[in-house]
């Protein structure tokens, strides 16, 4: 079984709802989606959600505001799964809630680095 990272991209999120403890409120949709994959013992790490604050650093001491590289889309978070093939992971990604919000998912295989 190989490990894959799913990178969730979408346009800038509106205000992010936080709980009293400062954690992001996860929607039922997301929870059910990820829970369904976790129930197959295929979730390696739920990973992390990323906020709206960011900087982009380029050569020559160029620092720009905002998490965007070039386009309006930002990375909203990422998680790690294990799957027999990228096709299996692709099937899961097709039901990812981010698609309903106009976003997209990128799947990449993970290469282990020595040491």
């Amino acid at each position: 079984m190989k490990e894959f990272v799913m990178v969730y991209r979408s346009e800038l999120m509106g205000e992010i709802k936080l709980t009293a403890e400062g954690n992001m409120v996860v929607s039922k949709e997301w929870e059910n989606w990820m829970g369904g994959i976790a129930a197959q013992n295929k979730l390696v790490s739920p990973g992390m959600r990323l906020g709206n604050e960011g900087r982009v650093i380029k050569p020559g001491n160029v620092v720009t505001n905002g998490p965007y590289a070039e386009i309006k889309e930002i990375i909203g978070g990422l998680s790690i799964f294990k799957a027999d093939s990228i096709e299996e992971a692709t099937e899961w990604a097709k039901t990812c809630p981010i698609l309903n919000a106009g976003g997209n998912v990128e799947i990449r295989d993970i290469i282990q680095v020595n040491g």
């Binding site: 039922k28 059910n32 990820m34 829970g35 976790a38 129930a39 197959q40 013992n41 739920p46």
Partner: peptide
């Protein structure tokens, strides 16, 4: 359901699934 989803994200077990 929500709690089982979260439990599975922390640690998989067949019974939780």
């Amino acid at each position: 359901l929500s709690l089982y989803n979260r439990l599975l994200m922390v640690e998989y077990s067949p019974i939780a699934a």
